[in-house]
Structures are given as structure tokens and as C-alpha cells.
């Protein structure tokens, strides 16, 4: 009886050690020992028990003509913080989306308007079937774009019609109000027409650490989003 229990314990110990080695090997294979992770240090998130506001817009079947604009969010007069998700056609090599994502404040007056291109993070492991998936932090104090965002829009700055693929979507999750644009207006004007096509695109998953964006970590400290 004692011999049988001893053997079982030995097998159990071997099983635990084997599982641990297998898990460590799997993690090493996935993350390669060193991985770039996004910075979430500036994401204000939701305060207290407030419920974030979410806007979900299906783009499939939509065609934007050249200079065509699709406004997707307007929080005026508040400038806000939140998270932006988009699935849209992109360049297969550079992953730059064909549509340009802009954000900032679009005022009734041109002088009070300032918009800029939103820095996007390309999410390779969620991108399929000819469309790329992007995440962005609204606003992104480290990688640029408009600092005070009341408006988000998609604009076709190419010279050709742009047709979205089935499953293409924009999702905007607004989590906090940071201020009032009436009290802190832009003093510099930049109109959508001043911009060129293509957003800055960062990629934490490729082998190029130069395009990870400011604030990303090189070690496995926290999970990405």
C-alpha cells in the first residue's frame, strides 16, 4: 500500500514539474522572452461608478467619396478621454488605413477648429480578411494627435472612392470629461483639409522596436489591450 502511494506521489510531482516546464516554454514561444507592451499609464478610465458612453458604428457597405467625411463622435463642448477601435481597409504592407482618422475640435468657426490625425496601434492578431484592426487612445499625450478631443471623424483624403469591407466598424468608448473647450479653446487653427492621407501607425507585434510608440514597455510587465 505504502509503495503504491509513494509511486503516485512521484508521478504527481513529475506531472507538476512537466506542466510548469510546458507552460514556461509556451509563454517563451509566444512572447519570445522580450515583448513590447503598450503604455496605459495615461488612460484616465472611468471614475467612480460612472458608466462610459459607447458608440458603435457599422461601416460595411459604406462608400466614402474623395474628401468625404463620416463624423463618428461629437462631445462638444466637452473634450474627453476614451478609447477608439476601428476595423477598416488598410495597406497590406504598411498597415496604414485607407481612411484617415481625425480628432480634435470642429468649431462652428473655422478659427476655433483644430483637428489632427489620430495615432493608431495596428492590432495584427485581430486583423483578417483584407481589413486591419486599430486601437487608439483618446487623447494620446505621448504619440501626438490633437490634445483636446471633442470630435472624431473619418475622412477619405485619397483621390478615389473608399468602400469598407463587411465587418468593418468604428467603436468609440468615452470614459471621462477632461474639460470644456469653451474655457480652453484652441488658439491655433488646423482644418481637415490641411491634413494629408494616412495616420501614424504603431505596431507592438512586429520585430521593429522603432515603431512601438512612446511609452511602450520592452518587458513583460502587464497585459496589452
Amino acid at each position: 500500500m505504502g509503495v503504491i502511494i509513494g509511486d503516485r506521489r512521484k508521478y504527481l510531482r513529475l506531472l507538476v514539474i512537466g506542466s510548469a516546464i510546458l507552460s514556461a516554454g509556451t509563454l517563451f514561444a509566444i512572447y519570445g522572452g522580450s515583448v513590447a507592451l503598450a503604455s496605459h499609464s495615461f488612460e484616465a478610465g472611468v471614475q467612480g461608478d460612472n458608466i462610459p458612453d459607447n458608440t458603435h458604428i457599422r461601416l460595411d457597405g459604406l462608400t466614402l467619396p474623395p474628401t468625404g467625411v463620416l463624423p463618428v463622435y461629437d462631445a462638444s463642448p466637452n473634450f474627453v478621454s476614451g478609447h477608439f477601435l476601428m476595423r477598416a481597409p488598410c495597406d497590406p504592407e504598411t498597415h496604414v488605413p485607407q481612411v484617415t482618422v481625425i480628432a480634435g475640435h470642429i468649431d462652428e468657426s473655422a478659427e476655433g477648429t483644430f483637428v489632427d490625425k489620430v495615432p493608431l496601434y495596428y492590432i495584427d492578431h485581430a486583423s483578417t480578411a483584407g481589413s486591419c484592426v486599430f486601437h487608439a487612445h483618446i487623447p494620446d499625450p505621448l504619440n501626438g494627435g490633437a490634445p483636446k478631443v471633442t470630435d472624431i471623424a473619418l475622412i477619405n483624403l485619397s483621390t478615389q472612392d473608399l468602400t469598407f469591407n463587411p465587418g468593418d466598424v468604428v467603436d468609440v468608448n468615452i470614459q471621462r470629461v477632461l474639460g470644456n473647450i469653451g474655457e480652453l479653446p484652441y488658439t491655433q487653427m488646423q482644418l481637415p483639409g490641411n491634413l494629408t492621407q494616412g495616420n501614424p501607425v504603431f505596431d507592438l507585434n512586429d520585430d521593429n522596436p522603432e515603431n512601438d510608440g512612446l511609452g511602450s514597455h520592452d518587458e513583460h510587465e502587464e497585459g496589452g489591450e
Binding site: 499609464s41 495615461f42 484616465a44 473634450f79 478621454s81 487623447p139 499625450p141 490634445p147 483636446k148 477632461l178 474639460g179 480652453l184
Partner: peptide, 11 residues
């Protein structure tokens, strides 16, 4: 907070 964006700085 961050001067440009108004984002709170928690560290």
C-alpha cells in the same frame, strides 16, 4: 495633470 490634454497624472 498634463498641461496639453488635461489628463490626470497618477504617478
Amino acid at each position: 495633470s498634463d498641461n496639453a490634454t488635461g489628463l490626470p497624472i497618477g504617478d
